[in-house]
Every structure is written in C-alpha cells, then in structure tokens.
Design a protein around this nucleic acid. Structure first.
Lengths: 336, 336
DNA sequence: CTGTTAGCGCTTTCAG
DNA sequence: CTGAAAGCGCTAACAG
C-alpha cells in the first residue's frame, strides 16, 4: 500500500501543501521543514502519484507514438530516436501499433486523447482527412512523420522522396542502365508509394527513356512481397538490367528471387534499394540504397513536438531530412 | 476545451452519477435517460478522462515494457507479440528503452510505479537483486522475459538456452565438425551469455572434444562486434571448421569477416546462429540458426502478466518457449 | 432506477 | 513561510 502525500504530511507534522512544495522544489520553504519532509519521504520511499498530478495539472509528460509496426527496422530505429529526445525533455512514451489499419489509427488517436498524452507522433502510410480532422478537434499537439502535412497547424517531418528516387535512378542510368524496372510501394501511400515512383518516372523521362507498363510492379513492404513482385516483372517478359525498389526489404526479396532464378547480382542485374536498413550492409552483395537517418527523423519529430507543446515557436509545416545515395556492391555498370 | 462528465450531466439534465452509469454500461438505467445521455455524448463527442478514472479506480489499463533496444529485430518482434495480446485484454503499452543500462532500468521501474501501470514486462540482460527488490517492494505485477526468475512471486518466460545451444552444436558435430569456435555473448548475461555457452561446452565435452581457450571469443550483440570477435579467433591461430554464434547478428558479422578474408561459407567454415531474426533468411548463404518465436515470448509474457494482474491464478515461475534447430545453407559437412 | 455525497492524491489560491 | 480549503474528472456507496 503506497504512501500518499497525506501520510507524509502527517508523519512530518506539516500540511500537505508544504509537502507538495517540497516535492515540487519550491524554494519558499523553511529549510528545517524541508529537511524533515525529505527525511520522511526518503524513509518510507514515497513517490508522488503521476496520475493525481496529471489530473490537476492537465499534463501527463507522456507522448504517444503511432506506427504501423516495430519489427521493421526503419520504425525500430525511428522509435529509438524518439525515445532518446523525449527522455531528454522528461517525456515518456506510449506506443501503439496499427499494422497500417486506418481504423486502428483512429482508435489509438482517440485513446491518446482519453489518456491525455501531451503530444502525438503519428506515422501513417495512408493518411486520410479523418486523421487530420480528429487531431484538429482534439487540439493535442501532433506531428506527422513520413507523410507530408496538408494542414499548417500539424507539422510533418519526412524526406524528399521524389528527389531521392530521382537521384537513385539517375545513378543507375549513369552506370549505363536503361532497362530499369521498379518495384514500387502501394498506391495510397503518398510518400513511399507515389513520390518514390514519380522520382523514378521523372529520371527515366529526363533521359528520354521510354518506360513501359510492365517495367513496374506494385508490392507491399515485405521481402516476400518483393520476391513475388520480381517474379511478376520477369513473367511479363521484361528482363531489366537494373532494378529500383521502393524499400530495402523489397529489394532484398527481389534479389533472392533473382538469385534463385540463377541471375548473378550485379553482373546480370543491378539492384538499388531505399531506406538503408541495418541489414543492407549485411547481405552479399551489399545493397546500394538511399540512406536517410531514421533516428534523425524520430528526433526531429520530437523536437518539433516539443515546440508545439511549449507553444514557444511554431515549427515549420514541412521539415525535410537529408538523404544520401549509398553505392555498394549490388550496382555495377551495365553489361548489356 | 474538452467536455467533462459534469457538462454532460447538465446538458442531459441528469446527475453525473447517471452519466457515469451510462458510460460504464451499468444496466440499471432507464432506457430513456440512457438514450438522452448517449445523444449528448455523441453530440459533443465526449470522452471520459482516463486519468480521472485511473485516479479513483487505481487502474490505468497500461502495461509498461522495459527492453534494451527496439532497433534489434528480436525485441521488435517481441513487442509486437506483447502489443497484440495486451490489446486483446484492453491494455495499452508504455515503452522504455534502456540500452542495457541498469540504472536506466531502475529508473524506469520507478517511473512505472509513479505512473501506476497495472503491470510490467521487464527484459533485462543483466538482472540484479536490485531489480527484484524494487519489484517486490512495489507489489506491481511483473514478468521477466529472457531471463530466469529467482523469485516465486515474479514469473519469467524464456527459452531453454542450454539445450538449444547444445542441440545446435551437436548438429555441427553430426556434420563432422570438431574444431568448432564459439562467439559468445557477455559474461554477465545469464541466459544469452552463460547458458548458451554452457550448452556449447557440454556438447563438445559429451563428444570428447577438447575445447581450447582460444576457441571462444566474447562479443557484444551487434554485427560489428561479431566481425571483430571472428578476427580475434583467427588471429589467435585457431582456424575452426565451424562457428557457433550466440546471436544471428553476431553470426552475420562473423560471416562477413570470413568472406572478407576470402573464406567460402559453408565450404571452408560452417556457421550457426541463434535467434532466427528476419534477415537470417535474407542473406546468402542463408543462415542456420536456432529458432524460437519472439512473438510467442511476448505473448506468453502478457498472458502470464494478466494472470498476475487478475490474481485468478498464479502463473508458473518458469515458462519455457520451445525452440527448434533450423538448418539452412550456412552449414555443410566438414570437408577437412 | 436516480441523485447526493464523499472521496481518489495531488496542486493551488488565499489568508494568516 | 505555512496551512486551510477548494477542486481536477471521475466512481462508488448510500439513501431515497
């Protein structure tokens, strides 16, 4: 049975107001009383209830995170970034996993309102107006990560997916590749899906390369999805000299399909991924990819959230995280 | 400004007790009143404050998770398991990352007490008496995952690391290997460190193989650590025909070192890992490893935690999760 | 079936 | 500098 502030007051022979002052480090307390109180607190190992405090102060020092999954390294790393900065600011985190299910996202948004978190970091692949409406109605500080905000009051942190893809594909072209396939991510996903595809298309167009419909396949984010997508492209009769995949795990799945089919990477087909997840460097051939810092993504999101919470300064509606082309062994000059 | 139960009471022309009954689904409410209240709630989109409710009920429907990291697939997957079952039971999760820092673990344990979580899942690699004492003093339900409990009131979920390692190494021996190196995990880690090593040692001993000191190197859990550890073993003058690593990422790091040195896997050296992380199957050669379900680990932990919370039934002090040897391409018969 | 009342553990005026 | 008192939003007896 934990001690309450009343117990401490009684034991120390003071009022609970005084105890409150002591635990909140308010200087206007007689040093003698303060010591007495502190001693009692120490003795019985008293800790104030965050719940009760939350009720009266309307603050929980909690931030809620909503992400699709956490077994995926991209999100794991991002959460570590979030956690680090949140801790620095004295915030703890609640975590909710949605499996990209919009209804769950909505539910968790509501849950976070119930729990009165001080702020929310939302990473949704299919951002809908419904999300935005809900967030605005709550008036809970919220920052979007991975998708671009469509509303001034809700800042977002993301990368420039278009440029990143554009540069990746340009790199492939510079290596002499023209027949470049792409395994793209789902259609509703504005950033990882659409933008990364647009960058690919633009790079080809700029070089006067006529892309055919069967050059691109749509895929989920898993390696298994990538495996199947690669099969689909080859089945269509198109044999590219290079592949650009919208995510590393997709790329890895595709690579396995190609290896299983007897292709040699990168001799027969070069492969370019996206995300630079931890294993990109642990496979052979090591995967060329677009790097950006998921840690930075998470950290920046929290920093912006802090601004929002403290209302000192309005963060920019859009914050871009830098990206970088990483050339590794999976890309070689075109041999055909 | 969110509505409170008082507002609803006023708007619906009833007492707040009645509103409370409605939102808590207590049947003894006149259907007319209930409808009226429900309508108002709907209209203004009222949601009861979980904080206030928590204060009076002494329940938060929150469970706290303490893990070293989340960028590591093992923990990511485990958390997904936890999340799934927790959600099923109506619990939400708080997450804290410790980077294996004992002081942080203690801090978070304390934090969870402040926040009055209903239960805690603790995954610590270096479990100390200090943890145990703290948990017992709190009287907060807590289950350990990954380490074995030393206290009847604190159940734990883990695998039989000794047997798993034993079987893995026996498998290597069955393939004709005798000169089997091991890269083991840190000394203080009773399970992944000590037990996995003991299994290795026992398997060798049972076959009458005399293990030398330079056959084993100690390593952290990262691929980089594994890379260096493999270097150390080779530098010592020992060239094994097989390697058993205490974790897949260690194995992967070691594999890269060997490939960099011009060895062929598995022709020159067979490699056996542990954990069956997602990428074990995404590398070439595919990694042989000890499989266990991290999802199951997490789910079982929550199930036990629920028993503890609901006090219906005391869970077993020790619950073992099954494991399984997975033979893939990284292991071949000994050629020497 | 419904309203009144008394808290849950804390912070915060407001007097003294 | 300190204590009394009110109240955060809700639940839970207890009468009626």
């Amino acid at each position: 049975v934990p001690y309450t502030i009343n117990d401490i007051a009684k034991l120390a022979g003071v009022s609970k107001a005084t105890v409150s002052r002591v635990i909140n480090n308010i200087k206007t307390v007689d040093p003698n009383l303060r010591d007495k109180v502190l001693k009692v607190i120490e003795q019985v190992d008293y800790r104030p209830s965050a719940i009760a405090r939350g009720l009266v102060k309307n603050e929980t020092s909690l931030i809620g995170i909503i992400v699709p999954e956490v077994a995926n390294n991209v999100f794991g790393v991002m959460i570590e970034g979030i956690s680090k900065v949140a801790e620095l600011h004295g915030y703890d985190i609640m975590l909710s996993l949605t499996e990209e299910n919009t209804q769950k996202e909505i539910n968790y948004l509501n849950l976070y309102r119930d729990k009165q978190v001080d702020g929310i970091i939302l990473s949704s692949r299919l951002l809908k107006q419904e999300h935005i409406d809900l967030i605005q109605r709550f008036e809970i500080p919220c920052v979007l990560v991975g998708q671009k905000s469509t509303t001034p009051s809700i800042p977002s942190v993301h990368l420039d997916n278009f440029s990143a893809s554009y540069e990746a594909v340009k790199t492939l072209i510079r290596f002499g590749h023209h027949k470049i396939a792409m395994i793209r991510a789902p259609l509703g996903d504005e950033q990882s899906g659409e933008e990364r595809f647009r960058g690919y298309a633009a790079a080809l167009a700029d070089e006067g390369i006529q892309m055919e419909e069967n050059w691109v396949a749509v895929s989920g984010f898993s390696a298994a999805d990538g495996y199947m997508a690669m099969n689909k492209i080859l089945q269509s009769g198109f044999t590219p000299t290079a592949l650009f995949a919208a995510a590393d795990r997709i790329a890895l799945g595709a690579m396995h399909y190609l290896l299983d089919q007897g292709f040699s990477i990168p001799r027969d087909i070069s492969i370019f991924g996206f995300d630079n997840i931890d294993v990109a460097e642990l496979v052979r051939p090591k995967l060329s990819t677009v790097h950006y810092s998921s840690v930075e993504l998470g950290m920046t999101a929290v920093r912006n959230l802090m601004k929002l919470i403290k209302k000192e300064e309005m963060p920019l509606q859009h914050t871009n995280i830098p990206h970088q082309i990483i050339l590794r062994d999976s890309v070689a000059p075109c041999g055909r």
